[in-house]
């Protein structure tokens, strides 16, 4: 770091070179830097290298996603989540889990009620049938003993 700008000039130049990629330089800062690098070859080299690096970074060749990329992504999404599942999300983005839970609960309760009714009904029939069979047996036994 040498030159007519002296240490302060070089420090200013370094600080300015550091922020070159952050923002566009104001006219005052730009002209002060220009004045300094005209007399300081080291700072000039740093300045030129930095501007070249920034220029290269900003002009690196762009690349596009491969052909059919979006279709492939949608295919993957549809494969693991059918569109029907999307309906389970409300307008605020929350899945309607509570609805599914309520439906499940009601289904279980109904199922249990039906099963219980069926068992009770079948049980009563069973008792009636047993009574009928016992009375028939008694009658036939009585008939047999009396004769």
């Amino acid at each position: 770091m040498s030159g007519n700008g002296g240490e302060t000039g070089c420090e200013f130049a370094l600080r300015t070179i550091e922020i070159l990629g952050d923002q566009k330089l104001g006219p005052g800062r730009r002209s002060r830097l220009r004045r300094h690098i005209e007399t300081c070859p080291e700072c000039k080299a740093d300045f030129e290298r930095m501007t070249a690096v920034i220029d290269i970074l900003e002009n690196m060749p762009r690349m596009s996603a491969p052909e059919g990329f979006a279709d492939k992504v949608l295919e993957v999404i549809m494969a693991y989540m059918p569109v029907g599942d999307l309906d389970s999300i409300d307008e605020h983005g929350h899945r309607k889990v509570w609805i599914a839970g309520a439906v499940f609960g009601v289904s279980i309760a109904l199922g249990l009620a039906v099963v219980r009714h069926f068992i009770e009904h079948e049980g009563e029939n069973g008792i009636d049938q047993d009574d009928e069979r016992v009375s028939k047996e008694r009658e036939s036994y009585a008939a047999a003993t009396s004769s």
């Binding site: 949608l74 999404i77 999307l86 409300d90 307008e91 983005g93």
Partner: peptide, 9 residues
């Protein structure tokens, strides 16, 4: 979120 997959596309 309302179920329109085209929107994600």
């Amino acid at each position: 979120l309302q179920g329109k997959i085209e929107a994600f596309e």
